[in-house]
Design a protein around this nucleic acid. Structure first.
Ligand SMILES: [Mn+2]
Ligand SMILES: [Mn+2]
Ligand SMILES: [Zn+2]
Ligand SMILES: [Zn+2]
Lengths: 135, 135
DNA sequence: ATCCACATTTAGACTTAGTCTAACCACCCA
DNA sequence: TGGGTGGTTAGACTAAGTCTAAATGTGGAT
């Protein structure tokens, strides 16, 4: 994994202590966390960080292309460090799983008359089958 | 269009004046309205209806299968009287358009290992091209 | 090393979507 | 006529997110 400081600098972001702490967590996670979950996670290592800074930082990262904000569930937006095209499966438990772009194909998108499609993804609802039986 | 009173009765819902007023709008609209937009629209005909009743009614309709609640954009859930499978295009303007189920195909969903998919749709972002040029 | 302009952070007020509560109303039937 | 039940209501409450204005930190010029 690349150094958070370097990544921020490459994107024209001053690597303050707070921003680096947020980046260390949110750019590597697979949790698709809400802003408040990011706050909780980051506070574990930087207890003095404020809620406003977490929101500021997440919005800045989205603006600079380091994160995507996703509206997949009611109640809160969720952040995704995977900015490449991919699909999502929203587990009944609330967890969100990435589905690689090439695992499913969407056909005839380009033939849709009357619309100019800038972006798309398949959003699935379901459950993750328990990986192999536990016993 | 079927009678709202009949539809409610068939779904085991007492057709009170307020519920019928909400149904008259929300079961026929193509706007994908938020709860507060429903309130605005219904108040035009039934000015004394309360916000709580609108929320209660929409949640009841969802529970009874008359409506779907969709989390497609940040800021609010929207309601959709089209409960058959279909896709959505979220216009940059904020408008949401239905895309018929058979206009695009999603392949290999059933071959996804480790997940049990209960439901899915394609969510597109883009713009509606001005229907023919205006002049 | 010091200074300063500017960027960053901060607490807490504010806004808005949505839920909850407890009183109130309307209808049905004894 | 008096409950009992349903439905409705205003307004309190919660929670996600933004905004403000003050405090603090920082890098570069001197
Ligand atoms: Mn909410
Ligand atoms: Mn909000
Ligand atoms: Zn993802
Ligand atoms: Zn729809």
């Amino acid at each position: 994994m690349r150094d958070s400081v370097t990544i921020l600098q490459e994107h024209g972001i001053q690597p303050s202590a707070q921003r680096v702490a947020v980046a260390d967590y949110v750019l590597k996670t697979v949790e698709h966390p809400s802003a408040d979950l990011v706050w909780t996670r980051v506070k574990a290592r930087v207890p003095y960080i404020s809620r406003a800074t977490v929101y500021n930082t997440l919005n800045l990262f989205v603006e600079k292309g380091l994160l995507r904000a996703l509206a997949l569930a009611e109640d809160s937006v969720v952040f995704d460090p995977n900015v490449d095209r991919h699909h999502h499966l929203v587990d009944e438990s609330g967890a969100i799983h990435d589905i690689p772009w090439d695992k499913v194909q969407v056909c005839n998108i380009e033939t849709l008359k009357g619309f100019e499609i800038h972006d798309y993804q398949v959003v699935m609802r379901g459950v993750r089958k328990s990986a192999r039986r536990k016993s």
